[in-house]
Simulated scan of single mutants.
Amino acid sequence: MLDTASPSEVRHETARIDERAPDFEARSTRGLVRMSDYRGRWLVFFSHPADFTPVCTSEFLAFQNAADRFDALGADLLGLSVDSLYAHLAWIKDIEARFQTRITFPIIEDISMAVARAYGMIHEGSASTAAVRSVFFIDPDGYVRAMIHYPMNVGRSVEEVLRVLSALKESDANQVVMPEGWKPGDPAVLPPPLDQAEADARSDAAGGAWYYTRQEASGDA
């Protein structure tokens, strides 16, 4: 378990797309949290560099304001930084007092940096121990399906996080792939054809090409 491992024991591990998310057990602002607790629902697991910082505060307000939208997509939110639990508690209490927003999702402490290193949230050789702005999309079976990393000085777009989550769910549900800029309600694209017959059939479809066929053009919408 990652909660008992030293940073040197996990430094060569990293979360990878289509592999199981590394499990862990950690204290959080909402009690003890285990990665395995989230099986059966999607999880948006994200790190931030430090509490009481301007960009992180703007992100946490945005994530909380969108919490109902994540819940409607069957997803939970989970935050992390290498700050202590007590710093997390003080920060979210101050956010509530100053911005009238109560943070309802857990924020885990990772003072040992074991979880952050296992997920690649702290870059090897970095002079800083702060976690970069990472987002991991973990499916109900516990597999990492997508990752986004931002530098410390650029805030995330919660709308983009929602878009990626929606795209992953749509792709899974309908065996389609999502083109550039796809948003809920837009047409998807069919996966590459598997044989010549399928390629020929798509060549006759209106509004597309055998290698780029919108879902509705094939009659599969």
Rank of each mutant, 00 (worst) to 15 (best):
M1L: 12
L2H: 07
A5F: 10
E9G: 01
E9K: 04
R11C: 03
R11H: 00
E13P: 00
I17M: 11
E19V: 00
R20Y: 06
D23A: 11
E25D: 03
E25R: 10
R27Q: 13
R27E: 14
R30N: 08
R30M: 15
G40T: 12
W42M: 03
V44H: 03
H48D: 02
E59K: 07
A72R: 05
A72Y: 05
A75M: 06
D76Y: 05
L77S: 05
Y86H: 15
D94A: 15
I95C: 08
I95A: 07
E96R: 15
F99G: 00
R102V: 08
I103D: 01
F105S: 07
R117Y: 12
R117Q: 10
A118R: 03
G125R: 13
A130L: 13
D139E: 09
Y143H: 13
I148K: 07
G155E: 00
E159F: 11
S166F: 14
A167T: 05
A167D: 09
E170L: 08
A173V: 03
A173F: 09
N174G: 03
Q175L: 14
W182L: 06
V189L: 14
L190D: 07
E198P: 08
D204S: 12
D204H: 04
D204T: 13
G207E: 07
Y211M: 10
A217I: 08
A217H: 13
G219K: 08
D220M: 11
A221P: 01
